[in-house]
């Protein structure tokens, strides 16, 4: 065996970046099957969707999709490029780092049998500006809106009472017009 000495193993430096939550807004032609294209893209390439919401817009035949996804810069950059590559995609923006309003609506069914629990829950409902939308002998159904942090905090506080069911819309987001100068397209080049 003819082996030449390895002087040193050289390694290509790769830029590092932290994994964090990104909010991506996608505007698409509202065609038959367009949502499937987006979800199957995420599934096929192994990206994890934390939440995805879709709805019509004021423009005819345009839908707006808000995707919350966790990943490092490289993964998110690739997700955005793959979304842009879809033929029916009109625009893709990562608004994570630009001022935006983020809301989620959640319905929570929580055990509330004893008076003490009912009082305590009502106090939390008031603090979080939530609303009781249905009452039964031993449950409350509560509606709450807010950003992810608020929602998570609220759910955690209700947890000890015993959660029966939760329905979440997923995150919706719009950029703040008041901070438009900060608005930047995600750079391709």
């Amino acid at each position: 065996m003819m082996t030449e000495e390895i002087k040193a193993i050289k390694v290509r430096p790769q830029p590092k970046s932290e994994t964090r939550k990104h909010i991506i807004i996608v505007r698409v032609q509202h065609n038959f099957g367009v949502l499937t294209r987006i979800t199957s893209l995420f599934a096929g390439r192994g990206y994890n969707i934390e939440s995805l919401t879709v709805g019509k817009t004021h423009e005819p035949n345009v839908a707006r999709i808000t995707i919350v996804v966790e990943g490092n810069e490289r993964v998110v950059e690739q997700i955005i490029k793959q979304l842009r590559k879809l033929i029916e995609t009109l625009r893709v923006r990562d608004i994570t780092d630009i001022p935006h309003i983020e809301r989620e609506l959640v319905l929570i069914k929580v055990h509330a049998g004893e008076d003490k629990a009912r009082d305590e829950i009502m106090r939390l409902v008031n603090i979080f500006r939530a609303k009781v939308v249905d009452v039964s002998v031993d449950t409350y159904t509560i509606e709450v809106t807010g950003n992810s942090e608020k929602i998570e905090a609220f759910i955690n506080l209700l947890r000890p009472f015993g959660l029966k069911d939760i329905a979440r819309t997923g995150v919706l987001a719009l950029t703040r017009e008041s901070a438009k100068e900060g608005l930047q397209e995600h750079k391709v080049e």
């Binding site: 290509r12 950059e77 490029k81 842009r84």
Partner: peptide, 21 residues
């Protein structure tokens, strides 16, 4: 990690998704 370890890379491609993938 060891591909062209010392090279700067210029990448010309029509598909943006191919770049830095």
């Amino acid at each position: 990690d060891e591909f062209a370890p010392e090279a700067k890379i210029i990448h010309i491609d029509i598909d943006p998704a191919s770049i830095s993938k």
